[in-house]
């Protein structure tokens, strides 16, 4: 039910690339809005394809590993964007697929379960629900990105993450909606990618910490892409690794059948 959210989350995190040159010269005077714009303008909007893995570990070390393939592209005739997701592994979930259609105002998912051989249209979202049993909720990512949309954020003194200078932005949030009262985001000054985020439910100790894997921060000219994140739920003792494979920026070639409910019944090669 939360696939759409995960898609959003994935896109916002992994597929956000940094166009660093636009703001690089004015780091000291960057406002929150400037930082938001730096991140927002680099969301990849073109049709593309990539794989990612979600490895969720519970407090006892038990894991649930997924391998997923994603396709997305905008509709040619409207503002609508469409995404399709297919679970590749494990076998028991293989073939489970989602089609997300958004016209900018409303969103709908078509969900396909191969065991039932049935497509079910779904609408709705749940901000605080964990996605696929992982440690990611949509609110997590949304709040990390919150500085982009609600403006209820302030820039604090710059900090360093693993020696890299970052903008530190603190965003106050509505706990009843998000589960958090505050999020602190550490945004790489060079790439405008999220290197770290701390999510606070109460007090001054974060409930969760999102950490980018600097070894997986790659430059795809002219973009920077973070290919690995780990979300640690400090209270639950769980963590989830999100690992993205190489990015394929496809100018063309994705068939329309991939973005229709009927296409679920046809195997994609």
């Amino acid at each position: 039910m939360n696939t759409k959210l995960f898609l959003h989350a994935t896109l916002m995190l992994g597929l956000t690339a940094g166009a660093t040159t636009a703001f690089a010269a004015d780091v000291a005077n960057m406002t929150v809005n400037d930082i938001a714009q730096c991140m927002r303008q680099n969301v990849v909007e073109r049709g593309s394809l990539r794989d990612f893995q979600v490895n969720a570990f519970d407090a006892e070390g038990k894991s649930n590993n997924l391998k997923v393939k994603v396709f997305w592209k905008p509709a040619k005739t409207s503002d609508e964007s469409r995404m399709t997701l297919q679970v590749l592994e494990p076998d028991t979930y293989a073939g489970t697929a989602y089609l997300l259609a958004s016209d900018g105002q409303s969103e709908q998912i078509n969900l396909y379960l191969p065991a039932l051989k049935r497509v079910q249209p779904v609408v709705g979202s749940e901000m605080t629900q964990k996605l696929w049993g992982s440690d990611f909720t949509f609110a997590d990512v949304k709040q990390v990105q919150g500085l982009l949309v609600d403006g209820n954020a302030k820039r604090l003194a710059d900090a360093a993450v693993s020696g890299r200078p970052t903008y530190l932005v603190e965003t106050a949030t509505d706990k009843s909606q998000t589960g958090y009262s505050m999020v602190r985001s550490y945004i790489d000054q060079q790439s405008c990618t999220m290197l770290k985020a701390e999510l606070f439910a109460d007090g001054t100790t974060p409930t969760k910490v999102l950490t980018g894997d600097l070894n997986r921060l790659v430059e795809v000219e002219p973009y920077w892409v973070m290919l690995g994140y780990t979300m640690n739920d400090l209270k639950a003792g769980t963590h989830t690794d999100l690992v993205l494979s190489d990015v394929y920026l496809l100018e063309r070639g994705l068939p329309e059948s991939l973005f229709t409910p009927e296409g679920f019944y046809q195997p994609y090669e």
Binding site: K62, S63, N64, T92, L113, A115, W132, G133
Partner: peptide, 21 residues
């Protein structure tokens, strides 16, 4: 069918009665 339904129906409420694996 049960596995796939639980997979896509994963939620906090579900996790309050069954674990990850």
């Amino acid at each position: 069918a049960i596995r796939q339904m639980l997979f896509v129906g994963e939620s906090e409420l579900l996790r309050s009665v069954v674990n990850l694996d």
